[in-house]
Write a protein that binds this DNA or RNA. Structure first.
Lengths: 133, 133
DNA sequence: GTAATTGCAAAAGATTTGCCCCATT
DNA sequence: AATGGGGCAAATCTTTTGCAATTAC
């Protein structure tokens, strides 16, 4: 494993992600980090998110909407619910036996390293105003 | 529903997607379409993919790798297997009882409109050379 | 002291959009 | 003929990268 340093920038970014369940974008993490380190740059945020992702301490989530990626601190496996109205992302439990399902039975699939489940719909807060979806 | 025209460009793009299972990128669709319509532009490909997606005739898939979206003609619900080595995407069946699972029991979830399953790993073709993953 | 890491700014990609012309209805 | 749609190029937006200066170890 390669050497790495404990910079304040890296620590803050990880702390922000461990403190929330809001699955923030890189831009939001940047804005939050600037409260503690006013000079931190967006490039540094991206570099650290990439590093922490490689270390498996952070997970990147592709949003349902057009915008960029969202991030979360690594926690036990779970799925994500995307609200198609406010674009919020909430953690949801995975069905039992989700990991054990024999995905390898499918043609083409040799081995599995990761599972991702995304459920899209309307969240409780948006439901009243939602015309459907 | 708003008016729309049957342009050759739109027809070709849809035809390309219906003719393949390779989940091509916009760029690849563009290159393929140019064989039939040498003057078609990439912007037109994107505009039509967007239109066809709104019409639910085409689905957009966020690739596992860094690159852009991939597309497929709308067919019955299924999951996607992403090879982490060659970045190929293959259709895989969804577990039975996947759609019936009571996602709405989760806090925050009011209604569900769509399910997305992504399985990441090594495909059969890459498995021999894969060091893991 | 040394090398990993930062800040800054430019670069890179993917996708979108304005505008004017053309083709479908 | 009316107007949706196309081609082209510029504009956006997110993410990456080169480089000189800084800082953790």
């Amino acid at each position: 494993m390669k050497k790495s340093r404990n910079t304040r920038q890296r620590a803050i970014i990880l702390e922000i992600l461990r403190q929330t369940r809001s699955h923030p974008s890189a831009e939001l993490i940047y804005r939050e980090a600037r409260k503690a380190l006013p000079n931190i740059s967006l490039g540094t945020v991206y570099r650290n998110l990439g590093f922490l992702r490689e270390q498996k301490m952070v997970k990147e989530i592709r949003a349902n909407d057009d915008a960029g990626s969202r991030f979360e601190a690594a926690i036990p496996p779970h799925g994500h619910f995307h609200c198609g109205h406010c674009n919020a992302i909430h953690d949801i439990p995975l069905p039992d036996s989700f990991n054990d399902f024999g995905w390898e039975r499918s043609e083409f699939v040799s081995s599995v390293s990761e599972l991702e489940l995304h459920v899209i719909g309307a969240c409780a807060a948006c439901a009243p105003s939602a015309s459907a979806n």
